[in-house]
Design a binder for these strands. Structure first.
Length: 579
DNA sequence: TGCGGCTATTG
DNA sequence: CACAATAGCCGCAG
């Protein structure tokens, strides 16, 4: 294994690196004058170490961001925060949380910075030059940035990392011993992938997604008209949009189309009675009255105007023509990546604005039927694994169930989501009959989750059931909430495992394509978008597929009937040119 | 001002 | 219309 080198970076103070033998080295951000500091030599030192093949060890993604900002693109790392979220679940993974967990301290006793008053003077604060206070917790002042105030402090801050990493290794070994997870090798693969994904996130934030502002503004204009020139002008334009709907009603109808209640009474006035005003419900009533059509069109424009309109472009597209959001390597539940700024839910109509830069192309690749294939892998169902040898695995399943392909598909999806009604539920019996191992795997997760027990993915990520995210959303009765927990758990072991495979794939792709001058510019759960010099596009395509096979070999459990994974890959000039 | 509900989009 | 996410606005409580 590569040598672990602890690192802490501050753009002003500089960086400290500590080799595994304990040798510390300080790298100054040389100050040439009071206003500017030169970080290039510091970046050079760090880059040399990186090229030597070390595995960086750091507290959390803040270090990854700092390094990327310096121009260093770390190749290997161990991110304590990312591994902590994998081990513990939840979304908090700051140094104080990681430290408390690995030292067996109650997280509710983590201290926060208190305003200085007469009473706090008497408390024994110990030596403020040490990172750990008398209460055993890391000092909140250090967490908040006091660790950067001197070279000595930075070094003490970085020295804490080694024992914490060792403690995480032990906890990973315990996790690997669980019946539901893979081996230590699988679990460490996940830990590496979770860590490296933080670097990808830092790069996605730094580099952004190529966005053609002119095209983007034209698309917006197609929905909502021209850009308002003043607040007063905006009011006029808004009224015009509203009038297109209200014109279908009797004179003098003034109501707020943004209020579902008022829309309901609007519809009632033309003889339409609906329990809610969702688009799929109104869709069926388009022919009933012209106002329905006008309303649906207004909704579409309103959505663009408020969420993906001029304001969105102004806020998130930089002068360099890159669309940027904040990225998280793993959400609090099953461990998928998340992104802000609409990067994960951009309407397809906006995708023509995602355009490769001159001399470049996008290589876009998405994993085919990733969740059922992952189910076949993690459940060890050999018959389902055999179905993955088909490019469309629903076809052989449909054959076995003696139903249509579409029925087979909704049945499989329904089984993974916990659906109990509709066409999928009818075909469920066939699935139980033909693929009992996979179905039992899902049912065990469902029952365990219903009982409030935490789950673990194949790669060793903890799925917490104690969290209040389930009972918070549906305040129904106890049984309904248990059923919701069951559906959540049933899905989380599949979705979470798919996220692990995806990240393993993504970090291998990143590593392989970097020498070609290509980089990942978007991660979308089962899809990668790569920005590459046009001359090397074909090479990137080959590397993308090779990386998938390698990721599957590292991540998936060994099986007599190997599970096949496949990617649909294309070279395109703009995002909308695919699918 | 904060929060639940409703709505819409994506995988 | 089941699983996950972000994000906007409305209506209501405090």
């Amino acid at each position: 294994m590569a040598e672990l080198v602890a690192v802490a970076v501050d753009p002003v103070q500089g960086a400290v690196t500590i080799r595994s033998d304990g040798d510390a080295e300080h790298h100054s951000a040389q100050h040439h004058d009071a206003q500017h500091h030169d970080t290039t030599s510091m970046a050079h030192h760090l880059g040399r170490l990186d090229e030597a093949g070390v595995r960086w060890l750091w507290w959390n993604a803040a270090t990854a961001r700092a390094l990327v900002t310096l121009g260093v693109r770390p190749r290997r790392c161990w991110d304590l925060g990312a591994v902590h979220r994998m081990l513990v679940g939840g979304s908090s993974s700051g140094p104080e949380v990681v430290w408390a967990h690995l030292n067996g301290l109650d997280p509710s006793t983590i201290p926060t910075i208190q305003p200085v008053d007469l009473f706090s003077q008497s408390i024994d604060a110990g030596d403020p030059e040490t990172p750990v206070g008398p209460d055993g917790h890391v000092r909140p002042e250090w967490v908040e940035g006091a660790w950067t105030s001197s070279h000595d402090r930075m070094e003490r801050w970085a020295r804490l990392l080694f024992t914490l990493q060792a403690a995480q290794e032990r906890e990973l070994a315990e996790r690997a011993a669980l019946e539901s997870t893979g081996t230590m090798s699988h679990v460490r693969t996940t830990a590496f992938a979770e860590s490296a994904t933080e670097v990808i996130c830092a790069e996605l934030e730094h580099d952004g997604l190529p966005f053609d502002r002119t095209v983007g503004e034209k698309i917006v204009a197609g929905f909502v008209g021209r850009r308002p020139t003043s607040p007063g002008d905006e009011t006029v334009l808004l009224a015009a949009l509203d009038r297109a709907v209200l014109a279908h009603l009797p004179e003098g109808s003034h109501l707020d189309l943004r209020s579902p209640d008022q829309v309901k009474s609007l519809l009632r006035r033309v003889g339409i009675e609906v329990p809610d005003t969702r688009a799929w419900r109104l869709e069926a009533l388009r022919d009933t009255h012209p106002v329905v059509d006008a309303l649906l069109e207004w909704r579409r424009a309103e959505r663009i105007r408020t969420t993906f309109g001029y304001g969105w472009i102004d806020e998130h597209v930089g002068a360099d023509g890159r669309l940027r959001g904040r990225w998280s390597g793993s959400d609090g539940s099953a461990g998928r990546m998340t992104a802000t700024a609409g990067l994960h839910n951009m309407p397809s109509e906006m995708r023509p604005a995602i355009v490769a830069e001159p001399g470049h192309v996008f290589v876009r690749a998405d994993l085919g039927q990733i969740e059922p294939r992952v189910l076949a892998a993690v459940s060890g169902d050999l018959k389902l694994a055999a179905a993955t040898h088909d490019a469309d695995m629903y076809a052989p399943i449909a054959e076995r169930l003696r139903v249509g392909r579409d029925i087979a598909k909704v049945a499989v999806l329904g089984a993974m989501y916990g659906q109990t009604t509709g066409k999928g539920a009818e075909a469920l019996h066939g699935l139980e009959r033909e693929y009992p191992i996979a179905m039992n795997h899902l049912r065990r997760a469902d029952e365990s989750a219903q009982g409030g027990h935490d789950l673990a993915t194949h790669g060793g990520r903890r799925i917490t059931m104690s969290s209040d995210h389930v009972d918070g959303m549906s305040s129904g009765d106890v049984r309904a909430r248990a059923a919701a927990r069951g559906r959540y758990g049933r899905n989380a072991i599949v979705q979470g495992a798919a996220a692990e495979l995806f990240k393993t794939w993504a970090i291998l792709v990143r590593a392989r394509i970097a020498p070609l001058g290509a980089g990942i510019v978007l991660c979308l759960h089962d899809e990668l978008v790569i920005h590459a010099p046009a001359a090397c596009a074909d090479d990137v395509v080959v590397l993308v597929d090779a990386s998938l096979q390698e990721a599957a070999a590292r991540w998936a459990p060994p099986s007599e009937v190997p599970v096949h994974f496949l990617a649909d890959t294309s070279i395109i000039g703009r995002w909308s040119d695919a699918k």
